[in-house]
Design a protein around this nucleic acid. Sequence first.
DNA 1: GATAAGCTTAAAGTTCACTTCAAGGTCAAG
DNA 2: CTTGACCTTGAAGTGAACTTTAAGCTTATC
Lengths: 137, 137
Amino acid sequence: MKIGELATRSGIAASTIRFYESKGLLKAVSRLSNGYRDYPLEAVALLAIINDAQRVGFSLEEIKQVLPEDISSWRHDELIAALHKKIADIESLEVRLAQNKAHLRSLIQLIDSRPDNLDCKDNAVRVMATMGIPNVK
Amino acid sequence: MKIGELATRSGIAASTIRFYESKGLLKAVSRLSNGYRDYPLEAVALLAIINDAQRVGFSLEEIKQVLPEDISSWRHDELIAALHKKIADIESLEVRLAQNKAHLRSLIQLIDSRPDNLDCKDNAVRVMATMGIPNVK
DNA sequence: GATAAGCTTAAAGTTCACTTCAAGGTCAAG
DNA sequence: CTTGACCTTGAAGTGAACTTTAAGCTTATC
C-alpha cells in the first residue's frame, strides 16, 4: 500500500505520516523499486492507535515510549522479553486511561447528582468545590 | 486574592492565567484600586477544572465552549455530552490496546511453543513487521 | 509526448498553548 | 527614600505538531 492509500484508509494526511516517520514514531518502511513507501495493511491500525491516544491527551513523545520497541537483537529470549515489556507498557497506559475515565465519570456523576433544591449556580459552586480542593496540582 | 496567590494555590502560572483571560477562557475579573486583578476563591476550582479537562484531551477552545464566562450559566447538557464523548474516545483506545495486547500474548505463545528448529527467528521478525512494530536499530 | 496525479525530499510556515521580555507602576520593609 | 517583591501591558519568543511550499521524479491517461 502506497502512502496515499494509507492516508485515505487511516484518515491521516500523507504529510503527517511522513512526519511521524521522521519523529521515529513509525519505522522506516520498505520502499518499492521507484522509491515510494510501501505499507502493510496493519499500518492503518497502528495509525488509529496513535490517533486515539492523541485524542485522549498523550503527546507524540509519550506514544513513542509505548509503541516502538527496540528489537534489534532478534535472539529468542530478547524477543520474548521485548514483547513482555511492550505488554507492560500497554498495561501502564491502560491504567492511566482508566484513571482518566474514572475522573470523567466522577465529574459526570457529581454534576448529575444535583439535589433538586439546589439551583444551577449553587450546583456549579458545589461541583467546583468538590473538584477543586483535593485536585489542585 | 491577587494573581500571585491564585497562581500558587492553583499551580498555574500567573502568565498563564492572564493568557486564559486574554483568550476569553476566564472572564475579566474585578480590579483593586491599584489596577491589580482580584480573584474570588472560586477561581482556584475553576482553574483546576480547566487543567483537568486539558489533561484528558480538551483544547482550550473546547473548554471555552463548555465553560462560558459566567460560572452560573454552565451549558450543563453540553458539558455532560462532551464528557461522555471523551469517555467513548478513551474506551475505543482501550479496545484497540486490548486487541494489541492479546495479539502480543498469542505471539509470545507461538514463539515459546516453537521447538529450536529452523526459521523461528526469521518468522518472528516477519510477524513483528506485519504488526507494524518498528525495528528501530 | 504532453498533462495530471501521485510520489520524493528539505525547508519554511502555521497554530496552539504558553513563556519570556521590556518597560514600567505599586507597596511594604529597612 | 531606596530596595525588592509583585503587579500592569503589549509584544516577541518557544516547542509541539503539523502543513505548505518548492523542486523534481514516476506513472497512468489522453
